Amino acid sequence: MHLSRDVLITLIKVLSVIVLAMVLFFIGLMIGYGVIGDGAPTQVFSRALWQHIFEFIQI
C-alpha cells in the first residue's frame, strides 16, 4: 500500500508540472502575440491564424 501511495504522489507531481507548463505556454503565446505582435491576445487561439502559420511554414 505504501508503494502505491508514493507512485500516486509522484504521478500527481508529474501531471501538475505538465499542466503548469501548458498553462505557461499558452500565457506566453498570448503575451507574445498580444503585446509584442500588436494583435489581440485571444486571437492567438484562432484556427485561421494557425492555418496561415502552417501554410507559411510549408511553402
Rank of each mutant, 00 (worst) to 15 (best):
L29A: 01
F25N: 02
F26M: 08
G39F: 12
I12L: 11
D38V: 05
A21N: 06
Q58W: 06
L11V: 04
A48G: 11
W50C: 04
I9W: 05
G34F: 09
A21T: 11
G28H: 08
Q43R: 14
G34E: 11
Q51N: 15
A21M: 08
F54S: 07
F45D: 03
G32Y: 09
R47S: 11
G28K: 02
R5H: 07
V44C: 13
L15S: 08
I57L: 14
Y33K: 02
F45M: 14
M22S: 06
M1G: 12
L20C: 13
V23N: 01
L15R: 06
R47Y: 10
V7R: 14
G39K: 13
I9L: 14
G32C: 08
I53E: 02
V23M: 10
L8R: 12
G39H: 12
L20T: 09
I59R: 14
F54D: 01
G39P: 00
A48L: 11
R47C: 04
W50G: 01
G39M: 13
E55R: 09
H52I: 03
G39S: 12
Q43F: 08
L8T: 06
F25R: 04
H52E: 14
S4E: 09
V35A: 13
L11F: 05
E55W: 04
P41M: 07
V14H: 03
M22R: 03
I31S: 12
Y33V: 01
I59N: 12
F56M: 05
V14L: 10
V44L: 02
L49P: 01
V17T: 10
I59M: 09
V14I: 14
M30F: 01
S16P: 00
F54W: 05
P41L: 10
E55Y: 04
I57N: 00
K13Q: 08
S46M: 04
L29F: 02
S4M: 10
I57W: 06
F25Q: 07
V17A: 10
L11Q: 07
A21E: 05
W50D: 00
M22T: 03
V19N: 01
F25D: 06
D6Q: 11
F56S: 12
Q58C: 03
G39D: 13
L8D: 05
I27M: 06
I27D: 01
I27N: 01
L3H: 07
V19A: 14
I31Y: 15
I59T: 11
K13G: 02
L24F: 12
A48R: 13
Q43I: 04
V7P: 00
A48T: 14
T10A: 11
D6G: 07
S16C: 11
V19I: 15
G39I: 00
L49F: 15
I57K: 07
K13F: 05
Q43T: 10
P41N: 07
T10K: 08
F56Q: 10
P41V: 09
H2R: 10
I59C: 04
Q58G: 02
